[in-house]
Design a binder for these strands. Sequence first.
DNA 1: CGGAAAGTTGACGTCGATCAATTCCAGTGG
DNA 2: CCACTGGAATTGATCGACGTCAACTTTCCG
Lengths: 250, 250
Amino acid sequence: MTAPHPALRLFLRRLSLRSRLTEEEQRAILAMRGHVGQALPNRDIVPPGHRVDHSCLVAEGLAGRFGQLPDGMRQITAIYIPGDMCDLHSAMLPRVEWALQALSAPLTYVKIPHGELLRVSRAYPAVAEAFWRDCVVDASIIAQWVVSLGRRSAVARAAHLLCEMALRIESAGQGTRTTFDFPATQIHVADALGITAVHMNRVVRSLRQRGVLAWTGRTIRILDWDALVHIGSFDEGYLEFHPDAERRPM
Amino acid sequence: MTAPHPALRLFLRRLSLRSRLTEEEQRAILAMRGHVGQALPNRDIVPPGHRVDHSCLVAEGLAGRFGQLPDGMRQITAIYIPGDMCDLHSAMLPRVEWALQALSAPLTYVKIPHGELLRVSRAYPAVAEAFWRDCVVDASIIAQWVVSLGRRSAVARAAHLLCEMALRIESAGQGTRTTFDFPATQIHVADALGITAVHMNRVVRSLRQRGVLAWTGRTIRILDWDALVHIGSFDEGYLEFHPDAERRPM
DNA sequence: CGGAAAGTTGACGTCGATCAATTCCAGTGG
DNA sequence: CCACTGGAATTGATCGACGTCAACTTTCCG
């Protein structure tokens, strides 16, 4: 038996942030088999309108979930970091209506067949609930994006997203909340915030000039965390860290 | 044994749109016990920042999930119709960060204890997956809202939402896609679309003048479905109707 | 060293916000 | 039966955030 892929350990770490799993359940998750893949930005890893039979686990880099409009405009509806199973939900709804693309060059990911995921989740009810809970956390994050897009200014939206990414990256052990690798372009972030690349640039400039942010190349340094939290009126509650003692199946 | 509440039958109907359940599993769902509640708009049914021990199933009327900002602005992140279990996800994450409010006067709902939901889902893996899938469908809808808020104009957003509500209401057996009861106010819809009530009114006027929509009192009549679909560049795929033959646990 | 993609900046236009009335309507009490 | 009331709907005038268009510069990578 070969060693599990490091990305699976990250995935287990993410699950363990919100769900308690026994040794055995953890072993079962780590034992899932998959195929490693690589991808470059601007080409679909998962194309919309098709049926998929596997979920993609980010191993290295960033991935984004894209909604497309007939006029060519696109909107990112989720950003995934290492340890995120981008489309765990496709195990329940295998016909997908969105696209998955790399936001970094390169992106490394592991394709886990739905068969593996369902086998483990059906063998261990606690794993099924951990997967279910993971999807719920994803939905909770998307709901916050709705709030941002609906009611926050462009600068506030940017600040909020940066806070979110900082904490998620920190909790995944991929950096600290004030200094982390962020290989996406301003264009990608603009597509996530629902603004144009031009305006995104002005937003970044504004945050830079206020001495809140330093964003050079692929690294982001947050120089004034409290200010950023304030600008984005950020409240980390929705990220749902901290597993709950009562969440074990009986 | 008393008869199950009619709302439970609607809920089962909703689940059955996407998941296949055996007779026994269906009976187990219908056997869940709950307490009926009523609510008026503008008062929290579920307040944010608290732990809940039950999920709310809409029986009659409309409910909305609200995100709140410090400055008092609010954004609706989901609209629920009869048969929707508003916060089924709270069974997995009982500490909620949003509020639930009535969008109609009155709203009737059934509070189902998490204990009941978890008991049934742990007894029947297929039910657990049906619940999981239901949450995934909710997330899929929210993701479309992100696309709307990020990249569509106000009129397009309104048209898209109306199409969505029409199909959801039709599939719940509460009307047809062209004529249905919609007891929410323009203010509520504005809060869902991320625009002001004033502009919402102009949007409605525009759709009315184009002969697409008639919205009088609590009834909506869509006079030109194709036009509405076109204006909102609406594609119903994300609503995920039609259960899938391969979705049964083995 | 050359080319493409990303980043950056300015000028100008527009969609939707804001402010401020006014009208409509259901419910309520006299 | 009618005045009264408060929320919703409606409309106009004005303003500002962000989009659009069009350069130009920097960075990256072969």
